[in-house]
Design a protein around this nucleic acid. Sequence first.
DNA 1: GCTTGACCCTGCAATGATTACAGGGTTTAG
DNA 2: CTAAACCCTGTAATCATTGCAGGGTCAAGC
Lengths: 135, 135
Amino acid sequence: MFKIGEVARLSGCSRETIRHYEKLKLLNPPRRAANGYRYYDETAIKRLGFIRHGRSLGLDLQTISELLALAEHPDSDCASADRIARHHLERLEERIASLERLADELRSVVVQCGGGRVADCRIIEALFDARYEAE
Amino acid sequence: MFKIGEVARLSGCSRETIRHYEKLKLLNPPRRAANGYRYYDETAIKRLGFIRHGRSLGLDLQTISELLALAEHPDSDCASADRIARHHLERLEERIASLERLADELRSVVVQCGGGRVADCRIIEALFDARYEAE
DNA sequence: GCTTGACCCTGCAATGATTACAGGGTTTAG
DNA sequence: CTAAACCCTGTAATCATTGCAGGGTCAAGC
């Protein structure tokens, strides 16, 4: 049985975040000691690891919550999990492509200024230039 | 002279966003007609274009505000603009590299499930797997 | 016994950028 | 004259998290 601070250290989520997940019903309310302290078991830590891992992959809490719901029915079909992951991968690839375009544009804009005047600055100029308006 | 709706159409920022920028002092308070309507000139539209362009590059409003302040002093040194842009480019490149790693992991996780049981699902399994804990 | 510091609790406000109301007033075209 | 399309203000929502105020509790050392 672990207090919230230990769980925070073990799971990598802050105490505030853990209480927040409880409020959002991503985590079952843990047992409480007589003094009101939360006490957790290992499954809560695993669950927090799952959430953290999902977050680090850029999944939102809603999506993670869906995956957790799936994980609670081990005998059901995993096609949904597959669909969710594939969908997320697609969005991720789009996002990367879009950031690559932006980096290209920034690179083309970041030139040697060597102490020039703002009036001649390509960076400022480029930002005022409507030709490159994005998505 | 343009009303806020026209400015919204011309600049690509919504009316709410324009009023929001005014509140954040990114935009000078425009002239008001007797009925209280905001009236803008072309410089406001240019400024909004600058902000939108910056946002589309992933700059935050604080950064954009700094660049706008620079742009207002055309005779000063543009080294600051250069530094801001380079710094942002670096962060962007880091972000892209990190997203690439995530996409790789997701790709390795998204395998054919073909109607398997959740209990055997690689996706769920991988999310529970602490080995891949990220940044 | 008593202080100190490390914990824990609740509930609410902040972040950043935007969007979405609610609850009004004004203008314009039919 | 009325309906639609505009405008106004102010406030609250979004998302995921963090921070704070204002408490209570616990273990160790004096």
